[in-house]
Design a protein around this nucleic acid. Structure first.
Length: 209
DNA sequence: TCTCAGATCGTCT
DNA sequence: GACGATCTGAGAT
């Protein structure tokens, strides 16, 4: 069942947590969301949501829309805007591949399943998501939905075949220890000086730095 | 005009 | 695992 637009009206951190385990699908490729990151404005002043610019305005004005931006000259990052009256978005950081794995391998130029969607830039590349989808409504072109039993079975089959367990593939610096995480930045000035708050299975962990 | 980034990859230890 | 090189474009000055 597709997630209703109203789902994204909630608090950003709530949405980030709730998106874990959901399926994201675009043009014959799909994966289960295993790592998300909540972006709000204050007190995270290094977030795009901290300042309204032509690029980030979508985070201020909408919920339930895809915010896709180009970064480091090579990659795209996929976010979904949240909250009605406050700026916010959830970055999709990692997926577990589910459908269209052949296509993903081709696009990513690797045969390693663990390396297909284990990062925000990687997953956009694997799914063929580019800036042209920026601003589209959730479920217009890119679908997000709750997995049914059939899909879960398929996921388990893929896991068996590739010796994977139900865990995220992200080697992300964000979550070196923990698997299947939602995260929130709690520092204030520059991205590299930020602290992180992780949510794993209902528990909270705060990074040391 | 300048700076540098919500990332990735290859190379090194 | 740590680190440097790298790409383009948005935002700052």
């Amino acid at each position: 069942m597709e997630l209703h637009k109203e789902f994204f009206k909630q608090d950003t951190v709530k949405v980030a947590k709730a998106l874990l385990g959901k399926i994201i699908q675009y043009k014959g490729t799909a994966g289960m969301i295993v790592e998300t990151e909540a972006y709000k404005g204050s007190p995270d002043m290094a977030s795009h949501a901290a300042k309204r610019t032509p690029r980030s305005a979508i985070m201020f004005d909408t919920f339930g829309k895809f915010y896709i931006y180009f970064v480091y000259g090579n990659y795209f990052c996929l976010n979904i805007t949240t909250e009605e009256y406050k700026p916010g978005a959830v970055l999709i950081r990692a997926l577990q591949p589910l459908e269209g794995i052949k296509i993903m391998k081709k696009r990513r130029g690797t045969k390693d399943v663990h390396n297909l969607t284990s990062g925000p830039g990687k997953l956009c590349q694997a799914l063929g998501i580019t800036k042209k989808l920026n601003g589209t409504e959730v479920n217009d072109k890119i679908k997000i939905y709750e997995p049914d039993n059939k899909l879960m079975k398929k996921l388990n089959d893929i896991n068996k075949k590739n010796s994977l367990s139900l865990k995220p593939l992200s080697p992300s610096k964000l979550s070196p220890k923990f698997k299947i995480v939602a995260a929130e930045r709690i520092g204030i000035k520059k991205a590299k000086h930020l602290k992180w708050r992780f949510y794993i299975k209902g528990n909270e962990f705060v990074s040391k730095k």
